[in-house]
């Protein structure tokens, strides 16, 4: 059962909620209690921009059992407009056409299913725009 863990991650997976260090301006995603850059402990809540560019990517042709019917799967690092870099799947794409630098947008997609009868887990993925 992945219900509790999934539920805890909803603010980030659904709404890209992050926090920004008041003293140095570093954005943490997911939010942190102590800033990794300046050790500051005061933060403002921020929501990340949902557009950015593809910094790099790889193609999974042999995936874990749960995702084995979805191959090939493109996974990339996306730099969002506010400078935050996230790792995400790239959906709706012919993997042979992907290019570093392409503009992408984050959308809500189904990430996985907890077995045949378990919950459906949603979260962000990138699509090329």
């Amino acid at each position: 059962m992945i219900t509790a863990r999934y539920h805890r991650e909803v603010p980030q997976r659904f709404r890209l909620e992050a926090n920004k260090c008041v003293s140095c301006g570093h954005i943490n995603f997911p939010p942190r209690l102590v800033c990794p850059k300046c050790k500051g402990q005061k933060f403002d809540n921020v929501v990340l921009k949902d557009e950015g560019k593809l910094l790099t990517y790889t193609i999974l042709r042999v995936a874990a059992d749960r995702f084995s019917k979805e191959t090939p799967i493109a996974v990339g690092i996306v730099e969002l407009e506010d400078g935050v870099k996230i790792t995400t799947q790239i959906a709706d794409v012919d993997v042979d056409t992907l290019q570093i630098g392409q503009k992408v947008k984050l959308v809500l997609r189904k990430i996985q299913e907890d077995g045949k009868a378990g919950i459906l887990c949603y979260g962000y993925k990138a699509v090329v725009i």
């Binding site: 019917k69 709706d92 959308v107 997609r109 990430i111």
Partner: peptide
């Protein structure tokens, strides 16, 4: 897509 359904379309 395999990761799309009524919920993702509605969102």
């Amino acid at each position: 897509g395999m990761d799309e359904d009524t919920i993702t379309i509605s969102v």
